[in-house]
């Protein structure tokens, strides 16, 4: 599944990013395999997506979000 499939408020870990379509800038901002990502719930606006990745708040378009693969985190597993 990709970030685009996450529900608002859901947290996940990035597992893979499509190397050719994802801008390097996104990686530099902390969007990397292994990073935690949370979809911020704002008024159901789905595009652009408002994300918290690695403590950085940023927004990307839905089409970019589809190229970032994740596995969901069970909220109870959350650690520091």
């Amino acid at each position: 599944m990709s970030i685009a499939d996450l529900k608002s408020g859901q947290k996940a870990i990035i597992t893979d990013i499509s190397a050719l379509t994802i801008p390097l800038k996104l990686l530099e901002m902390g969007c990397l395999p292994g990073s935690e990502v949370e979809v911020i719930k704002i008024n159901k606006i789905k595009d652009p997506l408002y994300l918290n990745i690695n403590e950085t708040y940023l927004a990307i378009r839905l089409e970019t979000a589809r190229d970032i693969l994740v596995t969901t985190l069970n909220t109870s597993d959350e650690t520091n």
């Binding site: 379509t21 801008p23 901002m29 652009p48 708040y57 990307i60 970019t64």
Partner: peptide, 11 residues
């Protein structure tokens, strides 16, 4: 080219 969009949402 395909467009992309990344914007930081500062505090």
């Amino acid at each position: 080219k395909k467009t992309y969009f990344v914007i930081e949402m500062p505090d």
